[in-house]
Amino acid sequence: MNKLLNLALLWCLANSATASEIELEKIHKEIDSVALERGVEALMADCHSCHSLKYVKYRDLIQMGLDKRKVDALRGEQLMDAPMMAEMPESDAIQSFGKAPPDLSLMVKAREGGDRYVYSYLLGYYTKPDGMLGNHIYPETRMPDPLGIAGATGTEQRVAIQGRARDIVSFLDWAADPHEVERLHLGNYVLAYLFVLTTLLYLVKQQIWSGLRRE
């Protein structure tokens, strides 16, 4: 019975492996504030006209490490306390694309594959034989190739676009989880503390139990 189930399980796993989807590209995301700054500037230029980040407020960018004057330049007429809403009203976007462009605040958390998915998607555009745009990762997409990867000629241009996509995704990573750096930092301290405490508790336990002499 056991053997049969094992075999069945193996068979099943093997099948699912062959049916796996297109491989996502690896992303070496960056968390230094220079990359994040490039990322938010690229996002404002390439994405923000249609996509909102309604859970990110302009003042949060100062927390991210951006200079206050740069935030002032990015926000324009918007208040410091205003969320980063798209320039294009949602109704106009629906008219142009048939559906509302999704909010990007949680985008890297809302997709299976996370930042690798978004990165691969941005770089997944190609020109079909009939001249139309296609996307390897999300074929039904209505978004036109925002970074121009499909029309890229030459390695140099491709590398530049890949860098831009990486910056944007690095920023989106921050936007989805602004406290990540703080969390990892705190986590190290907590684990170090727990290690010390647990070691001490173990020693106390040995001490107390060593007092137990059974005949």
Binding site: L194, L197, T198, L201, Y202, K205, I208, W209
Partner: peptide, 8 residues
Amino acid sequence: IKDLYGLG
């Protein structure tokens, strides 16, 4: 103490 060690 054994429970506390396990808790750690």
